[in-house]
Amino acid sequence: MPKLFIHTLTALLLIATSAVFAHQQKTAISTVLFNPRTENIEVMHRFSLHDAEHAVRHIFGKNADIIGSAKTQQQFSDYVSKRFAMSKEDGQSIPLKSAGFEIEGKFFWVYQETAEPEQLDNLVISHNALRDLWPSQINTINVEGKGDIQTLTFEDSIELLKVEFEHH
């Protein structure tokens, strides 16, 4: 009896341990940076590599490999870019172009940029990456370089958020 108990306990501990290490974050952090040196808006999206691994298998199939495949990395970058948008309050889109992607440690980064429009009083932003897969996904954006840092949080059913900029 004790031997069976020990084997059962060991099996349960292994299952619990693997569940802890396999836990997805389901959060992403992005920065929208107004860079005065380049006069560009630079967008940097940071996803947990673990979340990205799970996501690409759901989106692109079980053989998708975000760590070992440049094709999968490009596909994920394109996926993120299609689900992030900025516009002016009047609805005028602010198109972004890809500025690359990379794996850094435990994170997958996606970069975008555009020239800063003249007379920008506000930004309306949509960030739905991974939210189509996981309703609990939370995407946070920090807007920097135009006054105080402003933070937007996309969670639950929120699809559009706006930041206003003060004039000096």
Rank of each mutant, 00 (worst) to 15 (best):
E116M: 08
A55M: 05
K71L: 13
F60A: 04
I138K: 07
V124A: 04
A115G: 10
N63H: 10
S126P: 00
E113N: 15
L152Q: 01
S87N: 11
E155S: 14
E144Q: 14
F107M: 12
E155Q: 14
A70E: 15
A28K: 00
G61P: 05
N142R: 15
P95V: 10
F47W: 01
Q119F: 07
P117L: 06
S48W: 02
Q92C: 02
D78G: 03
Q75M: 10
V56L: 08
R46D: 11
D65A: 14
S77E: 13
L49F: 06
T31G: 03
I67K: 15
G91Y: 06
E116H: 07
A70S: 11
T72V: 08
E102G: 09
Q92N: 13
D51Y: 04
E116N: 10
I158M: 06
I125G: 05
A70F: 09
G145T: 05
L133E: 00
I41H: 06
R83P: 00
G145P: 01
A64D: 02
N128H: 06
S48P: 03
Q25C: 12
G105T: 07
S126D: 00
G147I: 08
A115L: 13
K146M: 15
G145F: 06
V124R: 12
I67P: 04
K106S: 14
F108N: 03
L130W: 00
S126V: 05
N139R: 04
T151R: 15
S126I: 07
A52T: 08
A129L: 10
I138T: 13
H50T: 11
D51W: 06
E113W: 04
E102F: 07
S87F: 01
I29F: 08
E42H: 04
Q92S: 13
I125R: 01
Q150W: 02
F76K: 00
E89D: 10
I94W: 00
D51N: 04
K26R: 08
V56E: 11
V56P: 07
K26C: 03
N40C: 11
D51K: 02
Q137T: 03
I66L: 10
Q25W: 09
E102I: 02
S77L: 05
P117M: 10
I59Y: 05
A115S: 14
S81A: 13
F107N: 13
Q112E: 15
I138G: 04
F84S: 08
W134R: 00
V32Q: 06
V32A: 10
I125W: 05
E116A: 10
H127D: 15
Q25N: 13
M44P: 02
I103C: 01
S81V: 09
I103T: 13
G100I: 07
G100V: 04
A129Y: 09
K82Q: 15
S81C: 11
G100P: 06
I125V: 11
S48F: 03
N139M: 04
K88L: 05
E155G: 11
K106Q: 14
Q73K: 04
L120S: 08
I94C: 00
L133G: 06
E159Y: 01
L152V: 10
D121N: 13
S69M: 03
K97F: 08
A115V: 14
G145V: 09
Q25G: 11
Q150S: 03
A64R: 14
N122C: 11
Q25P: 02
Q73C: 11
T72H: 10
N35L: 10
T114E: 02
S93E: 12
Q25K: 11
S81Y: 08
N139A: 04
Q74T: 05
K82H: 14
D156E: 07
